[in-house]
């Protein structure tokens, strides 16, 4: 292809030709096979470049998110499946102990299996200690929350948040009161924002989002959320225990 052909391809793609020029171009596409083939490849290259550079930031955000989900997934499946290998004797010994213990555990397991875990098994919240700023309403809210008066705490926290909407700690406690009061839409929305944010409450928000779903009987979604809690997070162990029960 000549230089001017490439210039022509580009002008056609960018709608810069006159009507007569467009007609002539289309005619040539029909009659000149090589010209048509080259044009199609040029169009493809143009599209490739457009996507490569225009979507660069979006694609890299996607790849990062994918990578972190993948790492968490593979880490948990590995720890589940790759247990250390012991000698045969040791394993036989283990089996013997397991068999005798099993009798005593029978009743306990029966309870575990047949009484499904519920939200109330987990709603022992860490006491609220937010007193920064010494605001009267905030102290009232803290008191109400710690006394389990969630309705009052909810109203007060809402007021405080109006003045301090970016405070992620307050957002979390506000979300908890909403779970307690069955205002799931508000709770889930608030928690989702925290999960997607970068605050220190990111992982705790995941835990509460899972509890919220548990209370709503959406165990599948709860499982999905629990699996996202990374090792090292405060609620990791508790989350794993709940996962075992749910799965």
């Amino acid at each position: 292809m000549e230089d001017q052909d490439y210039i022509l391809f580009d002008s056609y793609i960018n709608n810069e030709l006159s009507e007569t020029e467009i007609l002539a171009f289309k005619n040539r596409l029909k009659t000149d096979k090589v010209f048509a083939e080259n044009f199609n490849l040029y169009k493809e290259a143009n599209l490739f470049l457009k996507n490569k550079f225009e979507n660069e930031a979006e694609t890299s955000a996607f790849k990062n998110n994918l990578k972190s989900i993948s790492n968490t997934h593979f880490k948990t499946t590995k720890t589940k499946t790759e247990r250390p290998k012991h000698s045969k004797f040791f394993r036989l010994g283990q089996l013997a102990i397991a068999a005798s213990v099993a009798v005593f555990l029978g009743l306990f397991i029966y309870n575990q299996v047949f009484s499904k875990p519920g939200y109330t098994d987990y709603n022992t919240h860490e006491p609220m200690t937010v007193v920064r700023g010494n605001v009267k309403t905030l102290i009232e809210a803290t008191k109400a929350f710690n006394n389990k008066d969630y309705k009052k705490a909810n109203t007060l926290l809402k007021q405080v948040l109006e003045k301090d909407p970016e405070n992620s700690e307050l957002q979390l406690y506000y979300a908890i009161t909403n779970i307690e009061l069955d205002n799931f839409t508000i709770a889930d929305m608030q928690l989702k924002a925290l999960i997607n944010g970068q605050s220190a409450y990111k992982n705790r928000a995941l835990w509460y989002a899972a509890l919220s779903k548990l209370k709503q009987n959406s165990n599948d979604v709860s499982i999905m959320l629990l699996k996202q809690i990374p090792e090292g997070a405060d609620d990791y162990k508790e989350a794993q225990r709940l996962l075992d029960k749910l799965e």
Binding site: M1, D3, I7, F9, Y42, A45, L49
Partner: peptide, 27 residues
């Protein structure tokens, strides 16, 4: 800039066409 851009993309298509992989990809 306008002209050079078309020629650069043209250059890219040439490199693609000359590659041995090009034929294998059912073009």
């Amino acid at each position: 800039a306008r002209k050079k851009k078309s020629l650069c993309i043209g250059q890219l298509t040439k490199l693609v066409q000359e590659s041995p992989k090009f034929k294998q990809l059912n073009y």
